[in-house]
Amino acid sequence: MAVLAGIVVALGHPLLKPSPGSAATPDQDSSTLLPAPSPSGRPPSHAPHRGGRGALAEADGVVPDGATVLDHEVPAVANLDAELLDALRRAARDAADDGVTFTVNSGWRSRAYQEELLRKAVAQYGSEAEAARWVASATTSPHVSGDAVDIGPDRATDWLSEHGSAYRLCRIYRNEPWHFELRMDAADRGCPRMYADPAQDPRMRQ
């Protein structure tokens, strides 16, 4: 029996599965999952967000479910930088030929929306320094300036990670696979090396 048990372990028998919650299952969409827990054990506050408290609404950049980069009437989409939006729409049309749809989990945000996200992150993380790994200030956030978009689902982020440089669309942070920005020379030189997280981005220290 001991020998048999050893063989089962070595072969990775399907009965020996990881415990529930130890990892995301293959059909989960990481664009709506929270990143890894913080050292405090509390989940971080920043992943693509769909709402805030108080009076925050679509006019602040809250995204309705199912919004795509082609939705002209959604402020989170319409208020993106014109060149970024054009690149996203060209990429989305080509991705559609591969059966891939780009949804927008977050795009342009008002200062009020960004400030609320940061307050929430600080409360969950326990410090501004830890929160900065996931949420920028309203002054530095590329979402507030309309220069960043969070894309889903996984098939879309995978497609854009592979093909995005041809449209000058690049991932910026390793810890945020959904976050894309425009990089003007990416079509010729490829996307730049990613930062580990927003806290490593010099733009966030202004």
Results as ranks from 00 to 15, higher is better:
Leu34His: 09
Leu34Lys: 10
Leu34Cys: 07
Pro35Leu: 04
Ala36Gln: 12
Pro37Cys: 06
Pro37Tyr: 01
Ser38Cys: 11
Gly41Ser: 01
Gly41Thr: 02
Arg42Asn: 11
Pro43Tyr: 00
Pro43Val: 02
Pro44Asp: 06
His46Tyr: 02
His46Ile: 05
His49Met: 08
His49Phe: 06
Arg50Thr: 11
Gly51Arg: 13
Gly52Gln: 02
Gly54Ala: 13
Gly54Arg: 10
Ala55Trp: 12
Ala55Tyr: 08
Leu56Cys: 13
Ala57Phe: 13
Ala59Tyr: 02
Ala59Val: 13
Gly61Leu: 08
Val62Lys: 14
Val63Pro: 05
Pro64Phe: 13
Asp65Cys: 15
Asp65Ala: 15
Gly66Ile: 11
Gly66His: 12
Gly66Ser: 11
Ala67Ile: 00
Thr68Tyr: 01
Glu73Ser: 14
Val74Phe: 02
Val74Arg: 02
Val77Cys: 12
Val77His: 02
Val77Ala: 04
Val77Gly: 05
Ala78Val: 08
Asn79Thr: 03
Asn79Glu: 06
Leu80His: 05
Leu80Gln: 04
Ala82Trp: 00
Leu84Ser: 00
Leu84Trp: 02
Leu84Val: 01
Asp86Tyr: 07
Asp86Met: 11
Leu88Lys: 09
Arg89Ile: 05
Arg89Pro: 03
Arg89Cys: 07
Ala92Gly: 07
Arg93Leu: 14
Arg93Ile: 10
Asp94Lys: 12
Ala95Tyr: 02
Asp98Phe: 15
Gly99Met: 07
Val100Phe: 06
Val100Glu: 04
Val100Arg: 05
Thr101Arg: 10
Val104Ala: 09
Asn105Phe: 07
Asn105Glu: 09
Ser106Asn: 12
Ser106Ala: 15
Arg109Ile: 00
Arg109Tyr: 15
Ser110Asp: 05
Arg111Asp: 10
Ala112Lys: 11
Gln114Gly: 03
Gln114Val: 00
Glu115Ile: 04
Glu115Tyr: 05
Glu115Asn: 15
Glu116Gln: 14
Leu118His: 03
Leu118Lys: 04
Leu118Met: 06
Val122Ile: 15
Ala123Tyr: 09
Gln124Asn: 07
Gln124Ala: 15
Gln124Met: 15
Tyr125Leu: 13
Gly126Tyr: 04
Gly126Ser: 04
Glu128Trp: 02
Glu130Trp: 06
Glu130Asp: 10
Ala131Trp: 00
Ala131Gln: 00
Ala132Asp: 11
Ala132Ile: 03
Ser137Ala: 12
Ser137Arg: 14
Ser137Phe: 05
Ala138Met: 10
Ala138Asp: 14
Thr139Phe: 10
Thr140Arg: 06
Ser141Pro: 07
Ser141Arg: 15
Ser141Asp: 08
Ser141Trp: 06
Pro142Asn: 07
Pro142Ser: 05
His143Lys: 10
Val144Phe: 12
Ser145Leu: 11
Gly146Gln: 02
Gly146Thr: 05
Gly146Ala: 03
Asp147Lys: 14
Asp147Leu: 13
Ala148Tyr: 02
Val149Asp: 09
Asp150His: 05
Asp150Gln: 12
Asp150Pro: 08
Ile151Thr: 08
Ile151Glu: 08
Gly152Glu: 14
